[in-house]
């Protein structure tokens, strides 16, 4: 099946600065791909290249089978784009704005529009420039979701929104994702999107460190804790990430939780030792992956993610609802 988005060795430089470096990515149709990275990681640049707002320096991308460089005009009847910093026709009222965009889309769903308007409780006769940031994002969402695009690209759509508005938008996105809409959403905060993402990609300093399916990730990773250990084993398999001795236990992240790997752990630490092998949250997996693959081995300081090892992430999990 043809991917909804495919990029090959996409690179973008602004003068001497390289914003994006050799990004190759495939996003399957119907998936919800969360592109995560710190501020300045290159997420917006990547999305703008996909939307043909910027031209890549090298490499190429296809969107719904069309080269991104040819994306213009009619092609956007099937693609939605909402960005936190997009300029809107601010002189228009909400009603006039929707009246303006509606005729541009032959497949506009009036019922969905009405339902979204009701759900978002938008003030119809207020000009966009007089709306709060959250309200303006809601208006952008109504104008984008009402034509049921096959592909929805969202650039930091939830950042800075209050939890209520965020929940409302996430609920709608979840509904549309269930209907089969492909969604690519960027965020600098995994917590915003981890609930409904099916795939996860991490961009750091313009480089895509990993991109995998969330179920695969969750199935593949385990947090392992073996009590009564005082030193690291002499030889550590490559699938044991970030091993450490803490509180008298050996802790590590098992990067491949295949039955034979689990059996190997039990073999390594026979009874009466009972290894504790637990599933990990997406956040914990994300941190483990980021730390293992990052060239700098640390997350950017601006990242709201916890910056410690898996153990710290576990503590974070314990203390966070």
């Amino acid at each position: 099946m043809e991917p909804a988005i495919a990029t090959t060795a996409l690179t973008k430089s602004f003068g001497r600065e390289t914003a994006l470096r050799d990004v190759s990515l495939r996003i399957a149709a119907g998936s919800v791909f969360a592109l995560v990275g710190a501020n300045g990681a290159g997420k917006t640049t990547l999305l703008k290249i996909l939307m043909n707002i910027l031209a890549p320096t090298t490499g190429h991308a296809t969107i719904l089978g069309l080269p991104s460089s040819e994306l213009r005009g009619h092609a956007f009847t099937n693609i939605g784009y909402v960005s936190e910093n997009q300029e809107m026709p601010e002189w228009m009222t909400v009603t006039r704005f929707l009246n303006f965009v509606r005729p541009l889309y032959p497949q506009w769903d009036r019922a969905l529009e009405a339902s979204l308007l009701q759900r978002f409780d938008l003030p119809f006769n207020r000009r966009l420039k007089r709306l709060s940031r959250g309200m303006r994002m809601k208006a952008a969402f109504v104008s984008t979701l009402s034509y049921r695009p096959s592909l929805l690209i969202l650039d930091e759509p939830l950042s800075g929104l209050d939890p209520l508005v965020r929940d409302q938008l996430v609920q709608v996105l979840r509904l549309l994702a269930r209907e089969g809409m492909t969604i690519l959403v960027s965020s600098h905060d995994l917590a915003e999107i981890e609930d409904f993402a099916t795939h996860l990609g991490f961009l750091e300093k313009g480089t895509l460190l990993f991109a995998e399916g969330v179920p695969d990730l969750k199935a593949r990773f385990r947090e392992v804790s073996i009590p009564h250990q005082s030193a690291l084993p002499a030889s550590i398999p490559s699938t044991w990430w970030q091993p450490e001795i803490r509180d008298g236990s050996l802790r590590f992240v098992l990067a491949n939780a295949a039955p034979e790997e689990i059996a190997a752990i039990h073999q390594h630490f026979p009874a009466p030792l009972i290894p504790r092998i637990e599933p990990m949250t997406l956040r914990e997996i994300f941190i483990a992956l980021a730390q293992s693959k990052s060239p700098t081995s640390t997350l950017p300081s601006s990242s709201p993610l916890p910056t410690g090892g898996p153990g710290e992430a576990a503590a974070h999990k314990a203390g966070t609802p």
Binding site: M51, I53, L54, G73, T77, Y81, S83, E87, P89, V101
Partner: peptide, 19 residues
């Protein structure tokens, strides 16, 4: 300038508006 052609934040460039 209502549909400015310079910049990368314009609303209209990601809408099905034929040039």
């Amino acid at each position: 300038h209502a549909e400015t052609l310079i910049g990368d934040k314009q609303f209209w460039i990601t809408r099905p508006i034929d040039w």
